[in-house]
Design a protein around this nucleic acid. Structure first.
Lengths: 222, 222
DNA sequence: ACAATAGTGTCTGTCAGACATTATAGC
DNA sequence: GCTATAATGTCTGACAGACACTATTGT
């Protein structure tokens, strides 16, 4: 009745390896683009996947063996030229994980030629991560579950690409009130130990980090 | 080979009617949801549409007879429960037009029950418009091609839901440098005539409008 | 004591909001 | 003159960045 359209889900899974933003890639075993590097992805399975997000989680479970702490829909890439098999729509997601996750990580800055339009999808994911990092705690998902403020600041500097002032950074993080102190501390050498934190369990992530912070509405009125 | 998946495009077409944010709806002639109100949408036509955005433009042309000055992909809504015919994916777009566009406009604040999950899609579009309005000139697309600064400010106040200071608003708009003066002026009564502006032709829209939320008065305390 | 990093206090330039003032039209 | 709106000028509180300062560990 209607010409069949290929519907797939692809996931841009990112982490920070040795202070470099990396993406997980898989070498394709089959055509098309056999042997080339590609994002983990696959067909939507109408029988098992309740929706596209379910499919993304299933694919990450099957192909990477993980369940990421952060996953969000990125955009849908579609058209008749991106897949030699025909008109296709790829619902792309991006996910962030701790660097302890096992995978074939590739720095996003030096990617070879990739299958399909996956290079463009990765670029969109990196742009989104960068732009959201300016006003959210997203980069914290690139760290292990617990971390120090110094580590967190370093992650932000890596993602944003510019150094941040320690005092201002801590002031902002405190205002956001998105971290919980964890009992215990972390120490590397002969130095003062650092307090350990973890992300608060919450449903919303898009609080403002810098500049456009909602100015402490609290004070106003009663 | 793979179970067929329904791929459609739906467009949330918005404007400002009498200072109220409205969305264009169409009464469905056919099942499913025959007779109910729904977003303009339709199947992707693999033969004619180069990609999903092309399909969105085609649908707006066929069903509304327009080509909007602003169109952006919103998100993809998918799953096995949103369409009684089976597993479906709707690539949703949102578009802004001038209020002179002919259509059946409905205020977004008082929507009846809609077909499919279109109420959720509209909510997502409104949220996106609101959040982008804080740091872009997007609301200008809700006006005719030329307008005065007073009209523009009123639009922003409508979309953002809070009054803005005239001086600050103009300072910001000037800094953004996104408007061109148009020869001529506009006058309503026995008053000083207002300068007329139009949007500059450009490719990027996401400049910063205001760095911070409007500060709540509070001359009172402290 | 020193070294090294964690964490805080203080100053200051900048800027958004508040609001006064001037400008331009018709009467 | 008056009224109404357009457009601009000026002041001020608040905040982000800069940076000096204190705190806490091991040797």
């Amino acid at each position: 009745m209607y010409p069949s359209i290929i519907v797939t889900v692809d996931v841009v899974l990112m982490t920070l390896c040795l202070d470099v933003l990396c993406v997980a890639l898989i070498r394709r075993p089959n055509a098309p683009f056999a042997g080339e590097l590609a994002l983990p992805g696959g067909y939507v399975h109408a029988q098992e996947d309740g929706n596209a997000e379910d499919a993304a989680y299933r694919i990450l479970r099957e192909k990477m063996g993980i369940r990421p702490p952060y996953l969000e829909q990125l955009a849908t890439f579609s058209g008749n030229r991106r897949d030699p098999r025909g008109w296709s729509a790829s619902i792309a997601y991006f996910a962030l994980v701790s660097p302890t996750t096992e995978a074939t990580w590739q720095p996003v800055s030096k990617l070879q030629k990739l299958a399909f339009d996956h290079a463009a999808i990765i670029q969109a994911a990196v742009d989104r991560l960068r732009s959201k990092s300016a006003y959210s705690v997203l980069p914290a998902y690139l760290l292990p579950e617990t971390f120090t403020l110094a580590e967190l600041q370093k992650i932000y500097e890596q993602v944003l690409g510019s150094p941040l002032d320690k005092s201002s950074f801590r002031r902002k993080i405190k205002e956001l009130d998105l971290l919980d102190q964890v009992a215990g501390s972390f120490q590397v050498g002969n130095q003062r130990p650092a307090q350990i934190y973890r992300l608060k369990k919450m449903m919303t992530f898009d609080r403002t980090l810098s500049q456009s912070a909602p100015r402490k509405a609290g004070r106003s009125g009663q």
